[in-house]
Amino acid sequence: MRNNVKQSLWILFFVLPGLLIVLVFIIVPLFMSMFNSMFSWVSINRDQWVGFENFLKIFTQYPYKDRFFNAIGNNVQWFTTTMLVQNLLGLLFGYLLYKRIAGANIFQRIFFIPVLFSIVAVGFLWSLYLNPNMGIVNKLLTDVGLNDLTRAWLGDEKLATPSIIMVNMWRWVGFPTLVFYAGFNAVPEKVIEAAYMEGVGEWRLFRSFLFPLIIPSITIITVLTLIGSLNVFEQIYTMTGLEGGPYFSTDTLGTLFYRTAFGSVDSGQPEIGIGSAIAVVIYVLTFGISAISIVGLRKKEVEL
């Protein structure tokens, strides 16, 4: 019996400090966000219980509704473009590295370089390069005779979001490349050898053998892309500003949430109730979708 108490005390000693920090700074704020979203607020003081009114506002009432759906639409664009361009490119690069194409080692190292840089530094660097008058991108296009292709990359409502997504991909392609590369390498060599013995062609080998076996890597990259797309903030802040300009065309949930929480969406006043409701939406989307994907991943893993 004494031994049991002693052991419990030791466990407490080891687990408690970390657990307290996580509870106070992650778990409690989650529930506080839900709680706060049910109230109306006067500046930073909780006022009256309003139930789901704040949610109703962001889903149905001008201007909240317009800003909210505009922002979420951009987050969806972030996710789909990143999946289609960055992650497919990563898949191809990962495959080529796995195939030990000439220079694979060097390419692997080069592609990973920008992954380490802060989004802020990358965003500012490219905002200089993409400057319409003085930036090197338009300058280069002019110098090679492609004047017609020069654009106000970050100043055009249609182009601004795709441009920022491209910059973000520049920074991040190395990551899916490495994850897929590791995924391919984990495929048992016996499978590959057997397929070659049977005379299976390269494309069929990829489609019918390699691809199904790297589904865990695909799921992880999909979940991370989802979380990343929902959390876009610094990219917008550094390249087109907190207002998500021009005319909200680059606004995302992250920037909208920040403006709502700290003032300037409508009145310039912080709107904690509305902000908390947006936070709850971000939580539900992130947690819900990643939980579903991870359960899905488990199932696929069993099949292996």
Partner: peptide, 30 residues
């Protein structure tokens, strides 16, 4: 250690992986 609460405690830590901390900025600020 082997004890009943080990898994719930572990799950609390794991939940933190999937919760975006940025979304908690209002309660954190307060």
């Amino acid at each position: 250690y082997k004890y009943k609460l080990a898994i719930p405690v572990y799950l609390i830590f794991l939940a933190g992986i999937m919760l975006p901390l940025k979304a908690a900025i209002i309660p954190l600020f307060l």
